[in-house]
Design a protein around this nucleic acid. Sequence first.
DNA 1: TTGACATTGGACAGGTATGTCTGATTTATT
DNA 2: AATAAATCAGACATACCTGTCCAATGTCAA
Lengths: 206, 206
Amino acid sequence: MTEAKTPIKASARKRRADAERSIEAIVTGALDALSSDPDASMAEIARRAGVVRATIYMHFPTREALLDAVMENATTQVAEATRAAEPARGDPAEALERVLRATWKQLDQFHAVLGINIGRLSPSELRRRHLPITSQYIPLLERGQAAGVFRSDVSAEWLIAVVRAIVHTASLELQGGRLSPSTVERTMLTTALAAISPPPGELCPS
Amino acid sequence: MTEAKTPIKASARKRRADAERSIEAIVTGALDALSSDPDASMAEIARRAGVVRATIYMHFPTREALLDAVMENATTQVAEATRAAEPARGDPAEALERVLRATWKQLDQFHAVLGINIGRLSPSELRRRHLPITSQYIPLLERGQAAGVFRSDVSAEWLIAVVRAIVHTASLELQGGRLSPSTVERTMLTTALAAISPPPGELCPS
DNA sequence: TTGACATTGGACAGGTATGTCTGATTTATT
DNA sequence: AATAAATCAGACATACCTGTCCAATGTCAA
């Protein structure tokens, strides 16, 4: 992961170890900086990465390229953590809870870069890059819809959007001190579950 | 509303009618511009207001001052529309639905400037300025909590945050074409209601 | 150890945004 | 119609950010 350049043919030559380290530091530094300020400058990113500004341009030709790499990195990490939580196993509601417990902080970081990319990429391009994540949520949600555990009068995409919004809100409230670290997870999970559950009117008669 | 300057003593002198018009155009133009791009330049704001850039500085000494006025304007408008929807009348769930139906688009505009102000103002200052709105929602939500219609195992502030997040998500999905104009309201309302309802286990026995 | 790679620190040009200022012109008010 | 207020058009200084370049220094790998 965190590839700076994807050689067209075979890899030109081996990258030195310190270069590898720099790239790593730059990408994570950028994620940090951009999470707290979506317009963080290259200088600020370099500062957080413990690197001089010119070093960034050694590995990323332009700011855009760096943003691409940051997003690629974020999506990959979230996708891997999601996969590790086995979204296809067991009861849909329990599976969603399991996946969210394992990934909600990463998901929130992802929300930050998502906001940046909304104005930078076309909607279709955005959807394409989210596929590694959404392609794991869609089946889970549709499975829950089929089982009557989740609402089926709306699209699975809407359910994804709502869950993501609630995760992000919980992160914000936690960061703002309006939610305590000990209760965030439970609050977030119960709220997300409730938000995508079928309307109460159709619950009892079953 | 939309006062540019609040004179310390008595008002120095009457403002001319065209100045009043300019201020109005600038504030609404700024709201428009900043809603679609949080970093919109003064030039872009001036363009949308149909005014030359220097004119803005006639009425607002600095960009910050303009942002303050825009936020003041937004909160005032939302607060008034909320009040007009009578959040204290009738069943809490119906009252919330009534208020949201009347204000959700304004609330979303407000969400845009809120995002801008999160990095610009201190959390306490932010909360203070939201009071005209939150002070209307808190009683409504607490009333619903007392009546058992809304969850009471979490704070009313959390319920506010969740509702706001869902409103914003609905706006985004509508704008992105992933939700049709005819179904947004219903989807948003049912989701918001579900999100703040008590856990399903305690619903039927009542 | 040697030579290639990588980083540093700094300087540089080009672009853009903010805020100020000016003189000329238009507009509201009395 | 006369006066004051407001706007326009444009120039200006300042500052910041991006991307490029270079010479000197540090670091990896064979």
